[in-house]
Design a protein around this nucleic acid. Structure first.
Lengths: 338, 338
DNA sequence: TTGTAGGCGTTATCAC
DNA sequence: GTGATAACGCCTACAA
């Protein structure tokens, strides 16, 4: 026979003083037991833990944070959680922190610079131990990045602003694009299916770098630049067809763009990879949803998460700013087979 | 000529006392100006704001939180941020909080009950103003939900545990399944394409309810139960084909399952919707990635986010626990056309 | 309207 | 090894 259990917000919080009184010791001793900061005689330890348990005591981390000057909190600033690659980064960052007693504040900027600025201020006001941010814009986000870095340990994730000497962890885009161009040179008859690039305007370092390394390898190839989203991939296909292409190898700057490209090619009755090959970049989980499966370059998000954690919890409190580039892996799919 | 600007973590934080000294007023006055809690003579106000600005003062929210007993923080507990529907909920919750000076702690439980338990404890220790959680399990998460509700304002999101009188905001699954069954009765020749259900084991209220309402309408139809993921959708197709079906209308309990179903049908050379119709549930953004586009029932995530916010920032500090069910919308796609 | 002072819950320093 | 006590940064009676 189960009874309705109802919601009854807290009467008054149990504090260390309550535990101390109950256990017949001083608050200092309670603190030492709870925080395990110093050895305490076993008898007192048991008394304290017993009292704490009976009273349902739980440490108040706000009080602790104020006293210690550390919050065990990191702030993650991300342009859009609806973007599968960004939410994947958030997921793996969260799991990397798992067990380190660190919690993660998440703030979505919706790609808006002013919102991004406020997000940084909010995190700093909350005294986060570190700010991890995916800057919205390669240039215009510089002020926010520098502001964060001046007041807190800061790591740029995935994208970095130009000209700021602040930690960065992201994919080695040069190497990733190298994997793609090598695949094309080896497996594709470029005379039959010329390479085309569908990328993003150079407002982010990722868009910038991927474009640069593609054009270095295929300087004569046409390029189309838009946004990092599904809709742009669709539009790009229309432009490519208007420009008279009927066959080709479309290199997209991101999987999400590639998925839009594939969807639109299907819509026009074109076959992948028979008419157009399609190659993506990022390795998002939903790339499996594509039909055919997407040939892409995968960023090792788990490793990226761990790397950020290492940087943040570095023993030296002030490590030299570094740009860490993680090597991506080629993922063979059917959208551009070997 | 731009110089390298480098990362130099804070010397010492500027405090209200510093501002007060500089402005030649008391800390109380500074506090009143900064927090806009009481009127202050304009001359002093200007002096304070000037001093604050010169010193680069920013309020320390940890100190404020300790004093006020409110942190302006809510904790979001989610099983998996890599799940597009959950990350979409996170995104819209984040944007709903935008401008309310409330920040969001996010914790991914990875579907693990013990991790979920620890997440709740961590949030409570951090004195969050509210806990918003998507429980992992319909029954086994009950303890965590009740623990949260006993210590803080708590809202269950999307899924609810049985037998706990705690706020809930989620989709009206009965109504959603009603939209689907109505579509089938109206647009599908069930004699030619019999209905099949591919759902999830009843470990979550969503899985439970959707299954229940489907079988109520189609009691004779075969049902296949697995997980809420892409891989299960693929497996289910193999089972359905092994069981000898060659045509049918597959109702999936979630879009993510439906996408796996479609991918696997293609793999077997079967056509959608010619051989098998496919219908999803949730309305995740990536449903557009499917080819053909997915016929589904969309949960209004924006409205869900706003509703949670309303509940949390309710003026009455102790509103009666309520289950709020938001009506979903039918989204016509090509995977099951009219 | 402004200042003084106490305390939110915790930890660190200093005695014992 | 243990206890008293002073901060941490802020807000809010209370007094002036």
């Amino acid at each position: 026979m189960r009874e309705q259990r109802s919601q009854e917000p807290t009467a008054r919080a149990v504090t260390m003083a309550d535990v101390a009184e109950r256990a017949g010791v001083s608050v200092a001793t309670v603190s030492r037991v709870i925080s395990e900061s110093r050895p305490v005689a076993e008898s007192l330890r048991d008394a304290v833990l017993g009292a704490a348990s009976e009273l349902g005591y739980q440490v108040n981390l706000v009080g602790r944070a104020l006293r210690k000057g550390r919050t065990s909190t990191v702030g993650l600033l991300v342009p859009d959680l609806d973007n599968p690659f960004f939410s994947s980064l958030a997921q793996h960052l969260s799991t990397a922190f798992e067990g380190s007693a660190t919690d993660m504040l998440v703030f979505s900027t919706c790609g808006d610079l002013e919102v991004e600025r406020r997000g940084v201020e909010s995190f700093l006001g909350r005294q986060v131990d570190a700010v991890v941010m995916i800057p919205c814009h390669e240039i215009d986000s510089t002020a926010s990045v520098l502001r964060a870095a001046q007041a807190s340990l800061t790591v740029q994730l995935d994208r970095q602003v130009v000209d700021a000497d602040v930690h960065f962890v992201g994919c080695d885009n040069a190497q990733g694009m190298g994997l793609i161009t090598r695949h094309i040179r080896r497996d594709v008859d470029v005379a039959d299916k010329p390479a085309v690039y569908v990328g993003a305007h150079a407002v982010s370092s990722t868009g910038h770098e991927r474009f640069e390394h593609f054009t270095r390898e295929f300087p004569e190839s046409p390029t189309y630049l838009g946004e990092f989203d599904f809709g742009w991939g669709q539009q790009a296909v229309d432009q490519i067809l208007e420009d008279g292409m009927t066959r080709g190898t479309i290199v997209a700057a991101a999987d999400i763009i590639a998925l839009g490209v594939i969807a639109r090619l299907h819509h026009h009755g074109l076959r992948v990879p028979d008419d157009f090959r399609v190659i993506g970049f990022d390795g998002i989980g939903v790339a499996r949803f594509a039909h055919p499966t997407l040939t892409t370059v995968r960023q090792p998000v788990e490793e990226i998460g761990r790397t950020v954690l290492d940087l943040i919890s570095s023993p030296s409190s002030k490590p030299a700013p570094r740009a860490i580039r993680i090597a991506p892996n080629f993922v063979a799919g059917n959208s551009s087979p070997a």
